[in-house]
Amino acid sequence: MRTTVDQVALLARRSVLRTWRNPAATIFPLVFPMLLLAVNSGGLRAETHLPGFPTKSFVAFALAVPFIQGALFATMNAGTDLARDIESGFMSRLSLTPLRGAALLAGQLGGVIALGLVQACFYLAVGFVVGVRPAAGVGGVAVLLVFAALIALAFGSLGATIAIRTGSTESVQSLFPVFFVFLFISSMNIPRNLISTRWFRDAATANPVSYLLECVRSLIITGWNGEALGLGFGILAVIGVAGLSSAAAALPRRLAR
């Protein structure tokens, strides 16, 4: 048991270090969502004049987006790192050791969760500096951090599944446009009830990403909203269970000794 914990800790540390030592992988997930936040909150501020818009601060409305972009980076980081390990033969080397498959997966995802939390703290700090105060208070901030960690875990496990199944960084990278489409065809930039194009509103309603956004958004701009929280955490739980179980199922074949 103690050995397994050590293995998980070591692999998590390795996962964090390899991201930390790659400036592009560290800086991009912090800077790019903030740039997009700046651009959109500047350009779309006029939206707050629309009747029915839930807040007077577009930054507060848009701050939910970086959290969901964090999911994208978690998927990419977890998937790319694992796929690179497979491509470089590092995974084959691991399969020659008594390492448990679960420890490998837990270590990799542990690192991704740690980075997801760093990102979430950074986004909240930037929001705080520009005047965003979460309506749900300190408890809301704690829930936001838990949510960010779960996002990293759930989406990281999806990336890991693709990596373990295909063993190819290219396949993992090809997920990027798919997530991008899910993000943009959602309530990312405007509340669903204010989308006037019907097919787009229907697509955003069917898109689970909308509910993840609305969960984060509710804690920031409206306070405690049981329905939004329930939908957000529920969807995350489904994605997480699906991702983890498929990754765990694929791993034994990859680690066949």
């Binding site: 779309l44 006029a46 939206e47 004049h49 629309l50 446009p177 991008f180 489409v181 943009f184 065809i185 930039n189 405007i190 204010l194 989308i195 006037s196 194009t197 097919w199 787009f200 955003a204």
Partner: peptide, 27 residues
């Protein structure tokens, strides 16, 4: 494919999703 799909996607996301902005006073 990305060369054709990305502009089309942005066009869809912006023109479709944000069309209500046209109703903002002064637009």
């Amino acid at each position: 494919i990305p060369q054709l799909a990305f502009p089309l996607f942005f066009f869809t996301a912006f023109a479709g999703g944000l069309s209500h902005i046209h109703d903002v006073r002064g637009f």
